[in-house]
Write a protein that binds this DNA or RNA. Sequence first.
DNA 1: GCTTAGGGTTAG
Length: 772
Amino acid sequence: MPIHVVTDLRAEVPSHLKKVPIPQLNRSSAVLGTCVKGKVIKKYPLVSLEEDDYVLKTVIQEHEDQLSLPPGSTSINAILFGPLAKEFSKTVNQGDLVVMAGFVVGRSPTAQKDGLHPCNLQLAGVDACIYVYPSSSTGSSTSTISALTPVPSAETTKPKYTYVALKDLKAGMIVNIYGVVTFFKQPFRTKGTDYCSTLKITDQSDIKLGCTIFSEKLEDHPQIYKIGDIVRLHRVKAQFFNGSINMVSTLGFSVVTFDGTVGSPMVPRTCSRSFHFSDEDRHTVERLRAWAASQSALPSMSSALLSSVRPRMYFDLTCQLLAKAVMDSSCTLLRVWDGTRCAEPLLNVSVEPEALEGSTAITGGRDNLVANVLAYDNHVEVARGLKPGSYLRIYNLHAISQSGDTPPGSGTGHLSFHLHGGTAYGRGIRVLPEDSPDLQELKRTLESLRSDPNDSSLVEVWCTPPESFDSDPENIATELTCDHTLSFVPLACVKKATPPEGFHVRAQLRSYQPERLHQALKLHCPECRTLQDVPDEETVSVLFQEALRGTESSREAWAHTRHLDSSDPGRKISLHLPSYGEKGNDELIFVEGATLEEVCRLSEGQRGMIPVKSSDRKLTLLDLSTPVLIHGSKRLYGCKRCSQVKWLEPEPEERGELNDRSIAEMLGVKLLQYVFLLKLELEDGSGSLDALLWKDAESFFCVPASDAAANQKMQDQIKQTMDRFSPPGGSLERPWLDLCLRSYTVEESGQQTVCYQIFNTVTRGAEHSSQL
DNA sequence: GCTTAGGGTTAG
């Protein structure tokens, strides 16, 4: 796509290019090896289509020596695409003389208006080339010369695939072709083994070409949404039928579809993971788009909004599926809307609530927003597979006035919509992807409907995002364990309800606290029900240090006392080993005069260490902000408020099996329990609310809090779970969570606050990873 | 195993 700025005419333009006078150009002009030469008499601003994609229009006038020809046709519009447009905008000035080559001659859609040449020149891709002779003093433009791209060599630009113009097709050829869709049918089942897509395409040669595509896999079929889409077909065979050429897919067939709108993003619709798409392809699509935009002969689309539908109309409806119900073997009901209100009253087809899948909140016909579509016969198969919440385009829908209670033809009957059996006129249903440009208007309309403060009655419909209709349990990251039969409600409804009440919601995690998950681990006293943070390592360490400054080590009758050297000179560590029992006991050791680090090291042999100090010649526990027991990586804490620490005089008869409870009892300590406490900010499109994950947090994560306190792997597992629910950086999609919530009120300084807590919910997959 | 459909309104 080079532009050459030349100062010496004879030296720069390749000699093989044959110059064609502009007035002699027509649609069938050979373009290979030809060029036109003219003066830039108009240069329009560069138009940016998307990132790094541009279009620019310019008008060039035949070089002076040809001006004896009739005026009017001596000036021609040239449309430049891509980098060439940008380069042209930068390099070329009005008045410059240019030579253009590698163009396509198209029909000028503005010929009537601007009175210029009936054709235009379209320059795109690697073939397009412009040579510029600056008009003013050469000095002014020499600086741009060095910035020019070199001519790509023929070898490197040779495309891997070649495409045959539709006019050049001969029976028997197996070829690759491009075309603009002028008619299409969604894939339908044949009497054979395959699905069949029927389409008709055209290109700059204005030939209408029928194509038939067979494949037993639906994903191999073209994804055509509307007339004007552009398809690229690989390995199709030209056949004679009824006196004209038709194309049929052959072995190795593949298809890619693009939106046909000029300037719309070039997103390939294809199932193949890797497909070849070069700059040349890009420009071919651009050329076809530009050409199609200028064609008035293309059939118009028959899409309509619900608001513009009248009885007896056939139209294409772009809509969202709210609910569906199987009526009988040859009929499925689809309740849809597009956010506009029908001018005619809409019929409500009544269905048993059990038979309805999707939003049960609406009965249809409501406020003339919800249309009841009956899909018959061959469409039942597709209709049954649709997911409520998804976006659809229904082709050739028939508006039928049901005038049961009104005289026929009075125009006051209720409208229902029939998708009749068969595929005539392209009758069918297509699911549109969420991000389809064809949905932007629909989504905007639904959004404005949603924000209408006068209509809160629709809350249950509009506030539920499409994804939450997804009934595929594989896509939901959590699972309910309760046996309530509550139906799912939007968070907005949860917030409106009066507590206490239970709910099932499907929501996403927007954020959570504490972000540092180790802070989610708390100590809870089952007696006084207070909650406190787990003392941090430094605080505990300091308390141990303070205890070192105690009085002389005491000797207890119930224990053998041994001394160890500490890391500090002169300081002895006392180990008091209970002497009762048959052989004495080293399972449980009372340790005095040791630092936290030393106690931890001593407990590494899986012995329970109880840190103690001497006071009044008796042993007692340290401050209750320190662990009462350190056992390997496990630490037990006592409640300051509820413990009644005795002098340590363990009685032999008190000793049964050594466990946390018996140790605590022996020490007179009320043990604190490890618990998780997290605040999850949930959202679902209807709103957001904060829910606590506390009492059922252990089963939610499938990790006991006490294990998490002692085991880094368990903490990592929780981190992974939270990262999955709320991917860091927000780059990945957040999964939906099925949650069982309960609302309740908490009184705090005379103020009633409504709280929500998560119960009966488990994380999917957590039970497996916890086996680590 | 080598076909199917080959556009052009249901009739609920």
